[in-house]
Amino acid sequence: MSARHGMRWPTAALAGAVIVAGAALAVVAARGEPSPRTLEGRVHAVASTLRCPVCQNLSVADSPSLLAQQMRSTIAKELQAGRSPDEIRGEFVAGYGEWILLAPPKRGIDLVAWLIPILLMAGGAAWAGLAVVRWTRGSVPAPIASNAATGPGLPPGDRVLLERAIRSVSDEEPE
């Protein structure tokens, strides 16, 4: 009993630490980057959500191409004129379509891309939580002790083998 408790507390502490770390990570990820103060930072924030039209899979913030440079200067001018990042993105969408956005919009069929990771994360967390609860309950020794021969835990073939082995051991014992 005490040995099992000795195993339980570090496991629980570890599980707790993992949960706390995961929650902290989720909060940080959900909050995103702090909103930038400088114009350069604000331009970067908008440009990094837009796809560079002339290069594959580079954001406007990362692309060295001339068109991306011009898009960045357009973004800077619009920000200085008091436009909001969403308005500026909307203007690019009007010309290029939603293709220009690096992240799909959160509606229609594109919602799937947002929901699947969340569902998988939730499912994984639930599965991990259940597994941890099952392990820390300390129920592992019980079925081995009580159900070894005929318990529900063994496939029929293994059970036959096990029974045969037990029988052979007990047969040998008297001699």
Partner: peptide, 13 residues
């Protein structure tokens, strides 16, 4: 200048 019109028209190249 600055390709403002081209960007408004969604020109790739």
């Amino acid at each position: 200048p600055g390709e403002r019109t081209a960007l408004a028209y969604g020109v790739y190249g």
